[in-house]
Design a binder for these strands. Structure first.
Length: 660
RNA sequence: GCCUGGGUAGCUCAGUCGGUAGAGCAACGCAUUCGUAAUGCGUAGGUCAGGAGUUCGAAUCUCCUCUCAGGCUCCA
């Protein structure tokens, strides 16, 4: 028997006897590795440990504490979930069960149309732990398509997957089988066989650090028109500590939920009397929003924008010309019908209105680019199940602008616009971005192929030269044009879609907008739609979550609260507050009717950047005690002028007390 | 829109087997005057989301509607 030689990731080589598997390799390297090993990567292909190696192969062993390892154990956990469900509900049909970020899920169709309830999760969890204890090996088998179809004769979803792969293999389908001509399965006991490409952990005993999290409905193959299956979600990790850390992180995320902080900090609410997805801003949230908007306005003035205002409703005609009634009607509120039979719609977008402003008179090429800006409130009829705090609403205000320019100007205009966007977002404290390019939505778009190609190529060129990571969102554009969207990463690593920049050849055409060029001829302008916050409400929600409610000083509704130690100090406290207010600082005063500790506690819970405490010493020497947010170590004896200078410079630089 | 689970005082929540409503915080009043995260006592506050039904009797059981959360689909 001849030997084979394999290459390890560190560049070294190992000699093994012919027919040796990845597990044999791991064993040869060390018993610890053999014990930990879950799978292997052979020449870039993720595969089972049982896979025989061949001469010259590059092999790495996959262990639990790696992304690949976690993916394998999550995928295997999904199989155990399915096995547990088929034990508890004999006759259950199982559909697909992949690994996802942080966990896994599996979709089921229970006999008699039964649905899982939350209580079932506990039973399933117990059954899964029993299976783990049974230490069942995952055994791979391969069948012909015919045999595969016979094997899964009583599993209609599996049959559908096999047939779909035969007909037209999508990457999603291929995840479930080996290749279009070979049906691969894994069984971890004779009683449970699943269609799967693999690989899997050697046996169920490698699993166990999991938690089933929720049950949800999910459409078969993600299609609203197909039957809805019962999905169970779980999370799984390589160790109890990693699982606990993940659960802890979820709790942390919950603490910064803007809906919760909006309530706790008295910023805004969603009165049920008004309706779903329609929020109101309380004075503190209103202050925060006003500051956000004012700063944006100032930047837009500097950026050459002109400010316009337009109504919230319009005759149907306008949206017929724009194409919204043809392409966007299901996102619009139903019309109001007036006595004379005229239909009026609430506006879901501002662009047609701005186009009419453009068209209000003859335009010259000398006016272009013409940049029209509006904090425009729009209303969209979102499906009832999708509204979510201020991140998905039915009424919102966009920091919307439409730029009319010539075809020659558009590339430069988009380039400088992208810089403007990123610069502005950084001023609000977001620093990590990537871009997404959304292309023509198939079957839902107006305009010629050439126009779409030119617009998409222009955006791609600008996005590519921005030096940021660029991802492609195939078919995600608006009906009138492709778009670049700016995705920002927040403090706990989540990404949020914020700004969108859309290039539109269609609207000017539909409205017959034109300008007179230097050649004294009529030309059609190009239109750029752009919103930097996206919606003001949502941007505020993102910032609140990013900062966990600890807003930088310039955005805090109350920047300083002054407390007298006892009521003999209230006059001095008032003077301090007045002096700061003269400088434009938002200052609150909490008089000494309660113990100092209680007032400090309340101010801390309100996340006010600076608590100023004044007592006898301060009255005597004209100083302050400063208790900054994020610190439990107050500074004593600071002069008013020193504090004022520090505070004003922090506000001007958009800083926070935490980072000083 | 669909699936699962919720809705009890301003907020967070308890309420057993169907027997007529409870706490903490907040609010209000009185007292307390205090140097860095909760002073004490008292008062008031509820058509138990809304409607219908079952029952001698419903926060509790059934149905419908509204609404919230987590998913799916869709999306800024």
């Amino acid at each position: 028997m001849s030997d084979i030689e394999v290459l390890l990731p560190d560049g070294s080589t190992r000699t093994l006897s012919d027919g040796a598997t990845a597990l044999d390799l791991a064993t040869q390297i060390g018993p610890r590795l053999a014990k930990d090993a879950l799978a292997a990567v052979v020449d870039g292909e993720l595969t089972d440990l049982e896979t025989p190696l061949f001469n010259g192969a590059t092999v790495s062993i996959v262990t639990p504490k790696s992304d690949l390892g976690r993916e394998v154990l999550r995928h295997s956990s999904a199989h155990v979930l399915a096995q547990a469900v088929t034990r508890l509900w004999p006759g259950a049909k199982y559909a697909i069960g992949p690994a996802i970020d942080d966990g896994f899920y599996y979709d089921f169709d229970l006999p008699g149309g039964v649905h899982f309830s939350d209580d079932d999760l506990e039973r399933i969890d117990e059954e899964m732990r029993a299976i783990v204890k049974e230490d069942q090996p995952f055994i791979r088998s391969e069948y012909s398509v015919v045999d595969g179809l016979a094997l899964f004769a009583d599993q209609p979803y599996k049959v559908e997957i096999i047939n779909a792969v035969l007909a037209n293999a999508t990457p999603e389908d291929l995840a479930e089988v080996a290749s279009p001509s070979v049906v691969s399965t894994y069984s971890n006991s004779p009683a449970f066989v699943d269609l799967c490409r693999g690989p899997h952990v050697p046996s169920t005993s490698h699993l166990g650090h999991f938690k089933l999290t929720r049950v949800a409905g999910a459409y078969w193959r993600g299609d609203e028109k197909r039957p809805q299956l019962q999905r169970i979600y779980g999370t799984a990790w390589e160790s109890e500590e990693a699982l606990a850390a993940h659960l802890h992180q979820l709790e942390e995320a919950e603490l910064r939920d803007h809906r919760r902080l909006g309530q706790e900090l008295d910023l805004f609410s969603f009165p049920t009397e008004i309706g779903p997805g329609l929020g109101v801003f309380h004075p503190k949230g209103g202050t925060m929003r006003r500051i956000m908007e004012d700063y944006s306005r100032a930047r837009h003035v500097a950026g050459g924008y002109e400010f316009v205002y337009t109504p919230h409703i319009t005759k149907a005609d306008l949206f017929e010309v724009s194409g919204h009634l043809e392409w966007f009607a299901e996102g619009m509120y139903p019309p109001m019908e007036l006595d004379d039979g005229q239909k009026y719609y609430l506006k879901p977008m501002n662009c047609p209105f701005h186009t009419l402003i453009y068209k209000a008179r003859q335009r010259s090429y000398r006016e272009l680019p013409l940049r029209l800006f509006e904090f425009g409130s729009v209303y969209r009829y979102e499906k009832s199940g999708v509204v979510h705090g201020f991140t998905r609403v039915r009424g919102m205000t966009m920091d919307d602008a439409h730029i009319f320019c010539t075809r020659e100007q558009m590339t430069d205009e988009i380039k400088s616009l992208l810089e403007f966007v990123l610069d502005l977002l950084r001023d609000y404290g977001l620093t990590e971005f990537h871009l997404e390019l959304s292309t023509r939505p198939p079957g839902k778009a107006v305009g010629t192929d050439e126009e779409w190609e030119e617009a998409t190529a222009t955006l791609a060129q600008v996005a590519g030269s921005a030096g940021l990571q660029l991802t492609l969102d195939e078919g995600g554009g608006a009906f009138y044009g492709p778009k670049i969207s700016v995705q920002a990463k927040d403090a706990i690593g989540r990404t949020h879609q914020l700004s969108t920049i859309q290039l539109d050849f269609q609207t000017p055409q539909r409205f017959e907008a034109s300008y007179i060029g230097a050649d004294n001829a009529r030309h059609q302008p190009i239109m750029i739609h752009r919103a930097l916050f996206g919606s003001v409400e949502r941007f505020m929600a993102v910032l609140i979550e990013h900062y966990a409610g600890n807003m930088p000083t310039w955005l805090s509704p109350e920047q300083v609260r002054v407390l007298g130690v006892k009521d003999a100090h209230d006059d001095y406290a008032f003077d301090v507050a007045s002096a700061l207010r003269l400088e434009g600082v938002r200052v609150g005063l909490d008089e000494a009717s309660e113990p100092l500790g209680a007032r400090i506690r309340r101010a801390k819970l309100e996340k006010i950047p600076y608590i100023v405490v004044v007592g006898d010493d301060d009255v005597r020497s004209g100083t302050l005690g400063i208790n900054a947010r994020g610190s439990n170590d107050p500074e004593r004896g600071v002069t008013l002028s020193e504090f004022r200078d520090r505070l004003l410079s922090e506000i001007a630089s958009h800083g926070s007390p935490e980072v000083n």
